[in-house]
Design a protein around this nucleic acid. Structure first.
Length: 556
RNA sequence: GCGCCCAUAGCUCAGCUGGAUAGAGCGUUGGACUACGAAUCCAAAGGCCCCAGGUUCGAUUCCUGGUGGGCGCGCCA
C-alpha cells in the first residue's frame, strides 16, 4: 500500500514539475511515513516542505502541497481524500473498503507473505560467531549467533542470496595454548607432579579431553617430544571442541553453510603470495625486521604489522587473505558480525578492503554488544580463561531455545543487554516470547473451535470482508500490510530487533481485539469474515516467528 | 592522553535515517473470566529526551563544546 502511494505521489510531483507548476530541478526522494496520530491520515508525506526549502521560499509549502494534490492521478480509486495540514504535510486517507483487499496477498502467498525481491538476488557473504575452538560457546557468543542467523533469514526473505560462514581461528598462540593446556592436564592425570600454568585454559572441559586421550591411548605421550605432543593434542582438542560447538549451534537453531578453517589460507603459501602482491602496490612494506600494512593510507591511526619479527604472520594477515578469499568467491557484499569489543579493528579492516581494490561499502560490519548474564538480578561472573562461564548449551537447557533467542532479539544489537536466566525461563507476563506465542496459540484454538462448529476456512474470493468494519479490524489489517516494509527496513539496516518490536505490537493489537470482540458468533457472515482475518493474523505471526527462528506453537 | 559507542518514564529499552501532542514492557494504583485459552485485556499516574550553543520551516535525531558511563588503543585473537 505504501509503495502504491509512493508511485502515485511521485508521478504527481513529476507532472507538476514538468508542467512548471512547481520550480524544481529534480524530483526529490519521496518520503512517506505513517503518522502517529490517526487524525493525520493513514499516510503522510513531507514532499511539499522539501520542495519549498529547495525553491528558496518562493512558494509556501502549503501552496505546493495543494498543487501536488490536485495533480494526483484520479484514476486510482484508493484515496478517499488528501488533506494539507500543519506547515505543509500532505495527509492521505485511504478508502475504508480498500484495506481488506490487502488480505488477498496474505491468502495467496501464505508462508511467503512478507517476502520481497528488493535484494534482487544479490549475493551476500555473512560471517558470524567465528569463535576460537578453544572452549565451548558461552552466552556471549550466543547473541552474535542469533543476530547473525536472523539477519541471514531477514535478508533471504528480502530477496538476497545469503551464504553463512563460520571462520575457525585454528592457528596461532591461542591454539598452541590449548594443546599445552591439555598436555598439562594429561600429565597431571597420569600422576606427574606438574604445576598447571595460570596462562592455560582452566575449564573442566580440558580435563575431560585429557581423560579421553588417556582412555584411548594411555600414557604413550608421557615421555616423547613435547612440542610434537602439543601439536597432536592441539589438533585433537580443536576438532573435539569444534564438534561440540557445531552441536550447540544446531540445538540453538543456528546453521552454517560452511565452516572455514584459517589453516586453509596458508595452504600453497596463500597468505605469503597475497602479501607479495600487495607489496607491489606499495600497501605493504618491509622495514628490515617486520612487514607492515600501510593502513594509514586509508585513515587508520597507525600502520599494522602483518609479519612479525619472528617471521610469523599476524591474525590480521590471515584476515586480509580471508576477506580476499571471500571476494574471490564472487560475493557482491560482505557482512561481518563482530563483538563490539573489536570495534577498534574496523579501520584496518576497511583499509584492507580498499587496498584490495574493493568498494568500502561492500563490507558492512555489525557490532554486537556483549551480554551481562544475571540470575535474579545478580551478575554471574564469567571468564573464559578461568573456566568460569555459563555455556550456550546450559542456557538452552535451562531457559529453552525460543526464550533465549527472543531475548537476544529484543534490543538493538549494539546496545548492552542484560540476560537474566530466571526472568528468561519464567512463564509470565514478564517474558515477551510467550506474549507473541500465546497470540498464535490462541488463534489456533479459535480454529479448532471453528472446525468443531462446522466452519470451513473460506478462500479470499468466497468471503465477504465488508463485515470487517471495526477500527480494531482495520488496524489489524494495516499492521498486516506493514510486514513487507518492516522486513525490508530490517534488511536494509541489518536490524533484526525491528521484527521483534513489530511482532510485539501486532500481538498486542490482536490480544486487545480478542478481548473485546468474539470471532465466532451467531452471525455467520461476520464470523466467516473474522475467521478469515484471524487466519491472516496467524499467517503473519507464523511467518515472522519462523524468520526469528522461534517456534509458533498451536497449544501451550 | 587519543579514538569509537551510549545517555529518553522509578527500571529495561523503542523511536522507522530531520516531522505534527515523545512510545512500549516491567514495576505502582484501580478494574475485567457462567462468552472462542486471564501466559490476556481496560484505565490511571509517571518526562528539562544529560547540559550549553549551532544548522532550518521543524532537532530526541545532524554539527561543535562540555558532563557522566562502556569499550578500544599488542609484533593477542
Amino acid at each position: 500500500m505504501k509503495d502504491r502511494l509512493q508511485t502515485l505521489l511521485g508521478e504527481a510531483v513529476r507532472a507538476c514539475i514538468e508542467k512548471k507548476l512547481i520550480e524544481a530541478e529534480a524530483v526529490p526522494c519521496i518520503e512517506i511515513n505513517i503518522p502517529k496520530d490517526a487524525g493525520h491520515g493513514d499516510y503522510a508525506s513531507n514532499v511539499a516542505m522539501v520542495l519549498a526549502s529547495r525553491a528558496k521560499g518562493k512558494m509556501p509549502p502549503r501552496r505546493i502541497a495543494e498543487i501536488i494534490s490536485k495533480n494526483i492521478s484520479s484514476g486510482d480509486d484508493v484515496l478517499a481524500k488528501v488533506e494539507i495540514a500543519g506547515p505543509g504535510f500532505m495527509n492521505f486517507f485511504i478508502r475504508e473498503n480498500v484495506w481488506s483487499t490487502l488480505l488477498r496477498d496474505v491468502d495467496e502467498l501464505g508462508d511467503r507473505y512478507g517476502a520481497s525481491h528488493s535484494g534482487k538476488g544479490k549475493k551476500i557473504h555473512l560471517e558470524f560467531v567465528s569463535a576460537n575452538p578453544t572452549g565451548p560457546l558461552h552466552i556471549g557468543h550466543a547473541r552474535g549467533a542469533v543476530v547473525g542467523d536472523v539477519i541471514a533469514s531477514i535478508l533471504e526473505a528480502s530477496g538476497y542470496s545469503v551464504f553463512c560462514e563460520y571462520y575457525i581461528n585454528d592457528t596461532g598462540n591461542q591454539m598452541n595454548n590449548l594443546g599445552k593446556s591439555v598436555l598439562f592436564r594429561y600429565l597431571e592425570l597420569l600422576g606427574e607432579d606438574v604445576e598447571f600454568p595460570e596462562s592455560c585454559y582452566q575449564g573442566d572441559y580440558i580435563r575431560d579431553l585429557a581423560k579421553e586421550i588417556i582412555s584411548r591411548e594411555g600414557d604413550r605421550y608421557r615421555n616423547i617430544n613435547q612440542e610434537e605432543t602439543i601439536r597432536i593434542f592441539t589438533e585433537y582438542a580443536a576438532r573435539e571442541i569444534l564438534k561440540g560447538i557445531k552441536d550447540d549451534l544446531m540445538a540453538f537453531g543456528v546453521v552454517f553453510d560452511n565452516y572455514f578453517s584459517e589453516k586453509d589460507l596458508y595452504k600453497d603459501d596463500g597468505v605469503a603470495k597475497l602479501l607479495a602482491a600487495l607489496e607491489k602496490s606499495k600497501f605493504i612494506y618491509n622495514d628490515g625486521e617486520t612487514v607492515w600494512f600501510r593502513t594509514t593510507a586509508f585513515g587508520d591511526e597507525k600502520d599494522r604489522v602483518v609479519i612479525r619479527k619472528s617471521g610469523e604472520p599476524t591474525y590480521f594477515a590471515a584476515d586480509i587473505a580471508y576477506h580476499q578469499n571471500k571476494y574471490g568467491r564472487s560475493f557482491d557484499e560482505l557482512i561481518d558480525v563482530w563483538g563490539a569489543d573489536h570495534h577498534g579493528y574496523i579501520p584496518r579492516m576497511v583499509a584492507c578492503i580498499e587496498a584490495l581494490g574493493h568498494e568500502k561499502e561492500s563490507l558492512k560490519i555489525v557490532l554486537v554488544q556483549l551480554v551481562s548474564l544475571l540470575r535474579d538480578g545478580k551478575p554471574v561472573a564469567m571468564s573464559t580463561r578461568a573456566g568460569e562461564f555459563v555455556t550456550l548449551k546450559e542456557v538452552i537447557d535451562e531457559v529453552g531455545k525460543d526464550a533465549a533467542r527472543y531475548n537476544f532479539l529484543m534490543r538493538r544489537s549494539d546496545s548492552h543487554l542484560d540476560f537474566d536466566l530466571e526472568l528468561a525461563k519464567r512463564q509470565s507476563s514478564e517474558n515477551p516470547v510467550y506474549y507473541v506465542q500465546y497470540a498464535h496459540a490462541r488463534i489456533c484454538s479459535i480454529m479448532r473451535n471453528a472446525d468443531e462448529r462446522g466452519y470451513k476456512m473460506p478462500a479470499y474470493d468466497e468471503v465477504d470482508l465488508s463485515f470487517l468494519t471495526l477500527p480494531e479490524e482495520i488496524n489489524l489489517i494495516k499492521t498486516i500490510s506493514r510486514l513487507p516494509e518492516v522486513l525490508e527496513g530490517a534488511a536494509l539496516s541489518l536490524e533484526p530487533h525491528r521484527l521483534t518490536f513489530y511482532l510485539n505490537d501486532f500481538a498486542a493489537l490482536f490480544h486487545s481485539y480478542y478481548n473485546k470482540h468474539k470471532v465466532l458468533s451467531d452471525d455467520e457472515g461476520k464470523s466467516t469474515a473474522r475467521l478469515f482475518l484471524a487466519k491472516s493474523i496467524l499467517t503473519v505471526l507464523g511467518n515472522a516467528l519462523r524468520i526469528l527462528g522461534v517456534s509458533a506453537p498451536e497449544k501451550m
